[in-house]
Design a protein around this nucleic acid. Sequence first.
DNA 1: AGAGAGATTTCCT
DNA 2: GGAAATCTCTCTT
Length: 211
Amino acid sequence: MGIGNGLAGERFFRQPTEGLALALLGMVLVHEADEGMTAGRIVEVEMYKGPQDAAAHSYGGKMTARTQVMYGEPGHAYIYFIYGMHYCFNVVSGPLGSPEAILIRALEPVCGIALMAERRRRVVDSNHPKKVCALTNGPGKLSQAMGINAEQYGVALWDSAVRLYHAEDPLPPSAVARGPRINVGYAGAAAHYPWRFWIRQHPCLSVRSRD
DNA sequence: AGAGAGATTTCCT
DNA sequence: GGAAATCTCTCTT
C-alpha cells in the first residue's frame, strides 16, 4: 500500500522514448532483495536515443557485450559500470533493434531508507530530508542504495525483483522541466539537446542538475 | 561554494 | 594509453 497505482506491465514500455522518459517521472522503482525492500520515486531521467545520438553508448549502432540488451525489447534493465566505481541503471526503450535507453539519474527514497544508508555506508536520520535525498540523488548513488549492480543486467522490469510502479497521482506537465544532459560534452551538438527531464524544484535532484 | 584529484573497469585507438 | 551517462574527499575562497 502507498507505493503506487500498480505494477507497470510489459506493454507500458512499448512507447516512444521521450514519452516513456516523461512517464517514468513520478513512478516508483522497487527492488525486493534478500536483505529487504527499497523503493524510490523517480525525479530525474535522461534519454539516450540510439544510433543517431552521439552521447549514447549505442551511437553508430555499436554493439558490445555491455550494450547488447539495448538492442532487445524495451522494459529490460540496462546497467553499466563506469569510472571503475559506479553502476548506472537504465530502462531499455525502443522496439527490437532500436537501441535506446533512459538513464535514471535521481530518486526520492520512499521505502527501506535504513537499508539504503547501510549499502551507502552512511548514517542517516530519516527525519533529515537533505540527508535522505543524498542517498539517491545521482545515478551512481541510487544504484548503490537500491542494491542494483551487474546481477540485474538485462532483467525484465515487469517480472523481476526490480520493478516499476505507476504513480498514484499523475504529474501535471507544468511540474516537469527539461534541459541538456549531464557530462556528455564530448557529444558535439547532441550535448545541447534538451534530453534530461526532471520534477521542478524537487529536493532530491542530482547535484549537477538543480533548477 | 567551487575547483581539483583519485578511484579503477570497459571500451576504443 | 586515454576517456568515460560518477562520487568523494580535500583544499581554497
